[in-house]
Simulated assay, not measured.
Amino acid sequence: MTSKRLLKDIEFIVELDKMKSILRQTSLIDNSKRENDAEHSWHISVMAMILSEYANEDIDLCKVIRMLLVHDLVEIYAGDTFCYDKEGNKDKKERELEAADKIFGMLEEDKGRELRNLWDEFEEMKTKEAIFAASMDRLQPFFNNYFSGGGTWKKFDVSKKEVYKRIAPLKESSDELWEFTQKMIEDAFDKGYITRE
């Protein structure tokens, strides 16, 4: 007889397929289509594996990857809120907290709590793992915009100041990546991908 726990796990896994249908504003680098949440979560998890050696402090890479894999699960119910959408961000926290209760509540209490704790830690951005995870989450769309010739930066008239503010966690997590990214921001401005104000 199949256990209730296993049935809940399978139901959760099936629900996660919806991540593949949540479209983000960011396009793929080749501009062929908009990226979905599942693609984004996979990409930043691989980035963390590749770029973790540049972290300023020793980090628990497994924990970072686990955070990155769950950080956007709430968007199944809350939707993706574009980071530069001032209006949409006004109620983002409330929508995502409600969605977190729903998605993590699908699992047995111990497993749901474990994933919820990872999500909460990512959102609070206080631990070195959470800050590095947030850096990867912000660096990936940064790369997509830069290497696609401006992407959503140009589409939504994003300023250099807004880009610096968005990518700020990287300054705390990796000196080397921060230095590299600053050069890219200045180059993006010179190329007209981002505006002055």
Rank of each mutant, 00 (worst) to 15 (best):
E53C: 03
E53R: 02
Y54N: 01
Y54R: 00
Y54F: 11
Y54H: 01
A55K: 05
A55E: 03
A55Y: 09
A55V: 03
N56C: 02
N56M: 02
N56D: 08
E57M: 02
E57Q: 06
E57G: 01
D58L: 02
I59M: 07
I59P: 06
I59Y: 10
I59F: 11
I59H: 06
D60A: 02
D60R: 07
D60S: 05
D60K: 08
D60N: 15
L61E: 07
L61V: 14
L61T: 08
C62Y: 11
C62K: 12
K63T: 15
K63D: 01
K63R: 15
V64N: 06
V64Q: 10
V64Y: 12
V64W: 12
V64I: 11
I65S: 10
I65P: 09
R66A: 14
R66D: 14
R66I: 05
R66W: 05
R66T: 12
M67T: 09
M67E: 07
M67S: 10
M67A: 08
M67C: 05
M67F: 11
L68R: 12
L68E: 11
L68N: 14
L69Q: 15
L69K: 15
L69R: 15
V70K: 13
V70P: 13
H71P: 06
H71A: 07
H71L: 07
D72A: 05
D72H: 07
L73P: 02
L73Q: 12
L73T: 11
L73I: 12
L73R: 09
V74F: 00
V74D: 14
V74M: 06
V74N: 13
E75M: 02
E75Q: 15
I76Y: 07
I76N: 10
I76K: 08
I76Q: 09
Y77G: 03
Y77H: 08
Y77A: 07
A78G: 10
A78Q: 04
A78F: 01
A78C: 08
G79H: 09
G79K: 10
D80N: 15
T81K: 12
T81A: 14
T81N: 05
T81I: 10
F82D: 01
F82L: 03
F82P: 04
F82W: 11
C83Q: 13
C83S: 09
Y84N: 00
Y84L: 01
D85Q: 04
D85T: 04
D85A: 03
D85Y: 00
K86L: 02
K86S: 02
K86E: 01
K86Y: 00
K86P: 01
E87M: 13
E87A: 15
E87Y: 07
E87V: 14
E87S: 11
E87N: 08
G88C: 01
G88Q: 03
G88E: 00
